[in-house]
Simulated assay, not measured.
Amino acid sequence: MELGLKGKVAIITGSSKGIGLYTALQLVKEGASVTICARGKEKLEEAAEFIKNETGKEVLTVSADITNEQECKKIIQETIEHYGKLDILVNNAGTSSANPFESVDTELWQTDLDLKVFGAIHTSKAAIPYMREVGGGAIVNVTAVLGKTPPASSLPTTVSRAAGMALTKAMSKDLGKDNIRVNTVCIGLIRSDQLEKKWKEDASQLSWEEYSKDVVGPSIPLGRIGETAEAANVITFLVSDAASYVTGTAVNIDGGSGGTL
């Protein structure tokens, strides 16, 4: 299938590792020009080197704090100055913060909302005028499947992720007239630094494959933890021309573990 990504320009936030990094890698492989951004300059350079080693192509790196509106604007501006246009934005920056309601103080609420909700808002708002200039674009907001069915002691993450889903739907309604599509992917258990740390703490005698299938797998219909590249592949599809009639949709990437569609 031809994805129609050759010549497109994309920004992926939170892309020095994990899903963001592998999404950047996949987009570069498909012929897109990519900006990767995160707070840590050293990690960004390592990510850029990884992509270059895998593809032979260079990406633009922008060190920025997504919780700061001016730095969100800086990401967009540096991309425009370097590539001349913008077609795709993946709002991936975020961390997991899961606590009982009464233990979450005001500062943590604000930090989480600034990163996961306002970061996406500010970056999208700065990107949209440039997408209009090229006749349309695609935005993917990365959220979490638990935002649909929050369990106990899952705050503030599940609230921020639920807000991200509502933001996605509302944006898709407003921006459809401009041919700007907005979707969200709801992440379940996907291989990450946090999961690998838990594996090494709880079951270091097992291989990753054994831990994925035998320890965690029984709780997931597909029987294993998802791989980072599998999430990246879905995001790549959603920002591509192959998904040209898909907008306002939340796609679970969770191996079937979620309790809702």
Rank of each mutant, 00 (worst) to 15 (best):
F118P: 14
A120L: 02
I121R: 10
I121C: 07
H122A: 05
H122P: 00
S124R: 00
K125M: 13
A126N: 07
A127T: 03
P129G: 08
M131S: 06
R132G: 10
R132P: 09
R132F: 02
E133G: 06
E133W: 02
E133L: 11
V134F: 05
G135E: 13
G135L: 10
G136R: 04
G137H: 06
I139L: 07
I139P: 00
I139T: 09
V140S: 02
V140Q: 04
V140E: 00
N141R: 11
N141Y: 09
V142D: 03
V145K: 12
G147A: 10
G147F: 08
K148N: 08
T149A: 12
P150M: 11
P151Q: 06
P151L: 06
P151I: 04
P151Y: 07
A152L: 15
S154K: 01
L155G: 05
L155Y: 09
P156N: 01
P156K: 00
T157A: 14
V159Q: 14
V159C: 13
V159N: 12
S160E: 13
R161H: 14
R161S: 12
A162D: 07
A166W: 01
L167N: 08
L167K: 11
T168F: 07
K169M: 13
K169D: 07
A170Y: 06
M171Y: 07
S172D: 07
D174A: 13
G176I: 05
D178H: 15
D178K: 10
N179M: 05
N179D: 12
R181Q: 11
V182N: 05
N183H: 02
T184L: 09
T184F: 04
